Simulated scan of single mutants.
Amino acid sequence: MTYWLIPIQEDMWDVILTQGVYGYKSNLKDYIKVGDKLIIYVSKYYAKIYGGKIVGVVRVTSDWYVDETPVFPEETVRNKGFYIYRVKVEPEITGVCDIKAILDKIHFIEDTAQMAKYLRNAPANLKRPIPDDDGHTIEKCLKGEL
């Protein structure tokens, strides 16, 4: 099991939770495998509530597959699949964790002055896994234990 940081647009979170699927524009099978945990980070772009926050951890329960069915909000508006590389996921922990509030407790963000470079693309953290200790810290934060 490996932790991966996954930035999403805020409106994708409901789909991830209700339909149990995560999708991306390119295939991430070389990184993310069955059993891995995805730490879901809501990017600040277009966010109304959760921008800049981690909202949950989901566990990957399937291999990657291609599905062009529009399910994410951007896709349903245009009636076209954009995030066609998908995996099934199950929520493990949901909550709200302000990443800035735990910067002194996590280590994957090596240069806080350039924090944004660790929080973009998928998987984030420059395509590196999140250390287990940081994953556990984030889970505690989501549970309100920090």
Rank of each mutant, 00 (worst) to 15 (best):
T2F: 01
I6E: 01
I8E: 04
D14Q: 15
L17P: 02
G23V: 04
S26A: 10
L28Q: 03
K29F: 12
D30Y: 10
K37R: 15
K37N: 11
L38H: 01
L38C: 02
V42W: 06
V42G: 04
V42N: 03
S43L: 11
S43H: 11
K48Q: 14
I49D: 06
Y50D: 00
Y50T: 01
Y50C: 00
K53E: 02
I54A: 06
I54D: 04
V58I: 11
R59K: 15
T61C: 12
W64M: 03
Y65W: 12
V66A: 05
V66T: 14
D67L: 11
T69C: 09
T69W: 08
P70A: 12
P73A: 10
R78V: 12
R78W: 12
F82K: 08
I84N: 07
R86D: 08
P91C: 09
I93C: 00
I93R: 00
I93G: 00
T94N: 05
T94I: 14
G95M: 10
C97G: 04
A101Q: 05
A101E: 09
L103T: 06
D104T: 10
K105R: 08
I106T: 12
I106M: 13
I106V: 15
H107R: 15
F108T: 05
I109R: 00
E110F: 07
N121E: 04
A122M: 13
P123I: 00
R128V: 02
R128E: 11
P129Q: 08
P129F: 07
P129Y: 04
I130D: 01
D132A: 10
G135R: 02
E145D: 14
E145K: 14
L146I: 15
